[in-house]
Simulated assay, not measured.
Amino acid sequence: MEVTSTTKFVRLSPKKARDVAREIQGLPVSNALDILTFTPKKAAQLIGKTLKTAIADAENNFSLDTNSLMIKEAVIGAGPTMRRFKPRAKGSAGAIIKRTSHISITLVGAPPEKKKRAPKKAAAKKEAPAAEEATA
């Protein structure tokens, strides 16, 4: 079962966020949270929030075991770019580009195992006594 969580319009450059996202791909959720906690980047905090949301969705909405969850993919897409202009010398203008990102994390986990019933014991088959062959 796959669970996806997305955070859109994050005020962070996608290039900076992809470095952190590559570090956690393919890891178990607990290891990924440890890495994100101790990574001193703004992207680590934002990706951590998205990851915690995905974990909560998996646990509450799909009844998945959080210990068995793995990160299948962590994708950082480019969002819309805000363009601003700053006055420069001699009446010109310099462009300021403010980039945004979309963070998407997909988790994979097995559904919790249901208790298996013990197979019913087959009723003891009554064996008919072997017919003795009469010798003539």
Rank of each mutant, 00 (worst) to 15 (best):
R22V: 07
L27K: 15
G26L: 08
P28V: 06
K15A: 14
S13K: 10
L33W: 02
P28Y: 07
L33E: 15
T7R: 15
T6C: 03
P14R: 08
R18A: 11
T4N: 03
V29L: 14
V29Q: 02
A43K: 07
L12C: 06
K16W: 01
A32H: 06
L12R: 05
A21I: 12
S30G: 00
P14K: 05
V10C: 10
R18H: 07
T39C: 04
T37K: 15
R22L: 13
V29F: 02
D19V: 14
I35D: 06
L33I: 14
F38D: 04
R11D: 11
R11F: 09
E23D: 10
L27F: 06
L12M: 15
R18E: 07
A21G: 10
K15T: 13
K15F: 11
I24C: 13
A32N: 12
R18M: 12
V10L: 09
D34W: 03
P14A: 07
S30N: 12
K42T: 00
P28M: 06
S30F: 05
S5V: 05
R18L: 12
L36Q: 10
I35F: 10
I24D: 11
F38Y: 15
I35T: 04
Q25E: 15
A32V: 10
P14I: 08
F9N: 14
D19E: 12
P14V: 07
K41T: 15
V10W: 08
T37H: 09
R22P: 00
S30R: 09
S30P: 00
L36F: 08
I24V: 04
T37D: 05
T6I: 15
A21D: 00
T4F: 01
K16Q: 02
L36D: 07
V29S: 08
S30H: 11
T39Q: 02
P28T: 12
Q25I: 12
E23P: 00
Q25P: 02
K15N: 09
V20H: 02
T6S: 12
F38W: 11
A21S: 12
R22I: 02
T39K: 10
V29A: 12
A43D: 00
L36N: 03
P28S: 14
S30C: 00
G26A: 08
R11Y: 03
K15D: 12
V10G: 06
D19G: 12
I35N: 06
R11P: 05
T7H: 13
K41W: 01
P40V: 04
V10Q: 09
S30W: 01
L33T: 11
A21C: 09
K16G: 01
